[in-house]
Amino acid sequence: MSRKSAWAAGIFGGLLLLATIVLSLAVGVVDLTLGETLEVLFNRSSAEPTVEAVVWSIRLPRIIVAMLVGAALATVGTVMQAILRNPLAEPGITGVSAGAAVGAVAAIMLGATGSARWGIPLAAFAGAAAVSFLLLIILQTRRDLGTATIILVGVSFSALAGAIINMLIANAREDSLVRSALFWLAGDLELRTWDHVLLLIGPVVLGVTFLFTRTHALDALSLGESTAATSGINVTRERIVLLLVASLVTGAAVAVSGVISFVGLVVPHAIRIVVGASHARLLPLSAVGGALFLALADTVARGAFGSVIVQTGVVAALVGAPIFLFLLLKRQSS
């Protein structure tokens, strides 16, 4: 991509994100017009207190969380698909999402329910970090593992984590805890606050920025290990670093949002179909696409269904799956 078109795409993406924020701020139980929304945004002090609270304390942090999580998962999904050379790779493929889920469900069972700010995300992140650490040890001691084996290692982590989660849920003290756990597992952004933004922003911005610097390595790795090794990439080390960073970013995202697997699997494919597979283009556009997609999915989850509760993760799959199917079949026919 030439420098000029990169700037143009960057500015366009930024404007699109801002427009989505404003649009999304207006939607919800308390309906606001776009004019009112802008008024509250730019003239916060003179706004009516309830409207000010709705926009600044409830909706804005939630939208920013959605964007950070979406950008993180889509970027990591792209990275996983490149280094594992597998179109079914998604952010949780190494087992980190499952690890995060164990942490979160354990915290819920111990009583950190509802709006508990730090308990559940921190426990979830600890679970994801534990799985990342195990993965690191395995990759360091068995440097010869192929991509298929790494995927199977992730499958066994996930199976193990799934068993632990089932055990925790079966032994729940109260039914309400089971409901909370299931709610978390489906991925939702209800009641996300500035605390969650704070928790997310460091790992996501740092991790995603780092991944953006590895575009040549990702291009080379997507051509296979032999080619990567003769294209200036220290394959073993690069793969360990990328998998670790990707896992930790996923861990941070999932810790705050719950398991929203669809974004990381599908957004990279959709973007790839449209702009091609060169990572210099694919990676930033996936990040923006993921942020837009999840923010819009969350807006729908908040606004469109009235009394029916629909979670963000559910909307992401409900809306995303048909769009993806369309793109997929359209490409096959052309």
Partner: peptide, 28 residues
């Protein structure tokens, strides 16, 4: 040293000129 391995696979959506440029980038 550059290598053509027997593994010719690459992402299907990668454009030819982008794939070939990976070689040029490898040698900076």
């Amino acid at each position: 040293v550059a290598l053509l391995s027997q593994d010719l696979a690459a992402p299907g959506e990668l454009r030819v000129k982008e794939l070939v440029a990976i070689g040029a980038r490898a040698a900076r």
